[in-house]
Design a protein around this nucleic acid. Sequence first.
DNA 1: TTACTTATATAACGATCGTTATATTTCTTA
DNA 2: TAAGAAATATAACGATCGTTATATAAGTAA
Lengths: 192, 192
Amino acid sequence: MVKNQTRKEETRRNILDAASRGFREKGFAGVGVDGISKAAQATSGAFYAHFGSKDGAFLAALELGLDEVIDGVPQFQRDFGDGWTDAFIDYYLGRDHRDDLACGCAMTSLSPEMSRADAKSRALYDRKMQTIAGLVAKGLPQFPADQRLAKAWAFLGILIGGLTVTRALSDDTAIDAVSGAVKNAATDLLRA
Amino acid sequence: MVKNQTRKEETRRNILDAASRGFREKGFAGVGVDGISKAAQATSGAFYAHFGSKDGAFLAALELGLDEVIDGVPQFQRDFGDGWTDAFIDYYLGRDHRDDLACGCAMTSLSPEMSRADAKSRALYDRKMQTIAGLVAKGLPQFPADQRLAKAWAFLGILIGGLTVTRALSDDTAIDAVSGAVKNAATDLLRA
DNA sequence: TTACTTATATAACGATCGTTATATTTCTTA
DNA sequence: TAAGAAATATAACGATCGTTATATAAGTAA
């Protein structure tokens, strides 16, 4: 039974990863169950055995994606200490992250999908985003405690908006102008 | 011939409006040609006669949507003078605009679609967005001329990101917290 | 092995996808 | 009013959509 279980979890993980990439890159409506399953080297049979529905897979992919942020933020805080926000800004608006649609931050790729998502996904998004904002707020000791959460929300907002616009643009000069401007604005926002 | 022409333009306009609403609300992949045509009280035959393809209709809807911004920004500047940015912030992050997915600002609803759009739409987006940023920059005389465009891009970024997040959230308390925080950040950004 | 459970694959459902070709309607002009 | 052109409607194409039901394969336990 053990060997079968690990194989099962492997299939599930493959499908979940493919769903996560597909939804981020092409949006919920832009990718199909068959396409996800094929990308995972599996079939729609396995897809439905594991996730029950396309909405179910989206819910799982959303949770996976936002948990990456929930894990990532404290990691930045540990790795970079006081300067963690600068490092985070550079990463978030940097070229690698901008070009990696499929594996980039779920906040930017999936937030625009939420208004069309089902109730369970929307509720999960609410909870996870509040957790993320709270974690960011913890890393802003330069502000009085009662201002940190607001700064955190604004910080997330400008990063998400900036990344969205730079990804939407094609011209490299314009992209650099926007990402530079947004980086400066995000930095200034967090100056006490 | 005259009457037929106005009828033709009316049909075109109805389909374009329906496409504009559909793409903003449901995304490019989330709405179909038949659905758009039906919403316009027309048929797919008229749709293809006027726009040639779904991509063609998206291009036209994108142009229409960004032109609304290109018209709207100078209007705010004329109507509100020096305080135009405050009025714009209040409008952009206000409840009415947030709740109006179908008719809200195309920058927020369509930017996330651009990375999947065809070359012509992407090129149009680039041109129109640079026009918009230039118009915003003109309305920021409190900054030296060489800083205005950067401030304008950051301003657009935070508004787009803020609106995206508040639209994605369901909980009213969280929505108010985010929109308030983003409003403050946008205001502070434009302080000389 | 033999029976049984579980995980995955296959096949098919009706519906809708974007698109094309053709039919029909509507209007203009002679 | 008859003929012609233009605008729109209808019907159909193969492909894919999300989902279900069933078949096959791979595992464990006797």
